[in-house]
């Protein structure tokens, strides 16, 4: 399997990448770790005329705390997200998700920005980032803008990124004390991609009540879905196993899951409830709830 021929540019700076993108626009694809794009190019499902390699652009990787948020460079490898001490301490739910992407080798090479920009509905990170209320920093020749996850993921492989924009970083709000987040995934037995997954962020009051809940589901639609009925059912309730199970049972309400040869829509609705429950339980535990 060989990709079709293309022209290659190794951008040395963000400015250069943006210039190239402006020049070649729709004919060009940005290359980060390449773990979404290169497989598609090998099968010739993607045949870009030009690749702009961001791999040597400085300042696009790493994890740091920036005010009330965690700032993650777009080129940060999944393995570095999964093993980051700050993330494991402050946002272990994100580390959960990063550590179940693909396999060791894929995590060593694939990047958070690449995964987010590719917007595969069976990817892990869009789900947990939606649950965590993350936003994405997009650079263009005219400056930078920040787009919330809900507005960023539009549909299958479709995002709010304009043709002249580069995703440079991800900002994840640091949860307050008494919050916990978690991610639970049913992987496809062949591809390892998401059949159904759930990310949950639970903010717990010291009394044990749920102050707020954000629950996102993967594998159910062309983009991560918020489980609104589940969130509402948790709001203000004591985080008991019964309450969580009842809330999680509503996870798939109103959804029309995408089917494939492996899993029916009915099955996905069922496991959405199961994995939502597992994610909420783990998140509640991390928030200090004894279950």
């Amino acid at each position: 399997m060989f990709p079709a021929s293309f022209g290659y540019f190794a951008a040395r700076s963000l400015e250069e990448a943006l210039e190239l993108l402006t020049e070649y626009g729709e004919d060009a694809k940005l290359l980060a770790g390449g773990h979404s794009l290169i497989p598609a190019m090998k099968l010739r499902l993607a045949t870009p005329r030009y690749l702009i390699d961001l791999g040597r652009v400085p300042g696009l990787s790493g994890v740091r705390i920036d005010g009330e948020a965690l700032a993650i460079g777009a080129l940060t490898a999944h393995a570095d997200v999964a093993s980051s001490a700050i993330i494991r301490q402050r946002l272990p739910g994100l580390a959960d998700a990063a550590s179940v992407i693909g396999d060791v080798q894929v995590r060593n090479r694939g990047t958070i920005g690449g995964s987010v920009a590719h917007a595969d509905p069976a990817a892990d990170l869009p789900v947990i980032l939606t649950a965590l209320g993350a936003s994405f920093v997009l650079a263009s020749p005219s400056g930078k803008r920040t787009v919330a996850a809900e507005d960023f993921f539009i549909d299958f492989y479709t995002t709010a990124l304009a043709p002249n924009e580069v995703l440079t970083g991800i900002r994840v709000p640091l949860p307050p004390s008494g919050a916990g987040a978690a991610y639970a995934k049913l992987p496809h037995p062949a591809s390892g991609y998401v059949v159904v997954s759930a990310g949950a962020l639970i903010i717990r009051q010291p009394s044990g009540q749920c102050a707020s809940a954000r629950v996102a589901l993967g594998g159910m639609a062309g983009r991560p879905l918020r489980a609104g009925a589940t969130e509402t059912a948790l709001q203000g309730k004591a985080l008991t196993p019964q309450v969580i199970a009842a809330a999680a049972a509503k996870a798939a309400e109103g959804s029309d899951p995408i089917e494939d040869a492996y899993a029916s829509a009915e099955y996905k609705r069922q496991v959405a409830a199961v994995y939502a429950r597992r994610a909420i339980e783990s998140a509640a535990k991390r928030a200090g709830q004894k279950i």
Binding site: Y8, A10, H35, I38, K42, L43, Q105, N108, R109
Partner: peptide, 26 residues
Amino acid sequence: DTSQCGACTIHMNGRAVKSCTVLAVQ
């Protein structure tokens, strides 16, 4: 040809990666 089997695993800067999913130029 879908980056699954791992027979092509090598180390790049000390990390195991699948060399079928990396361009030589990278």
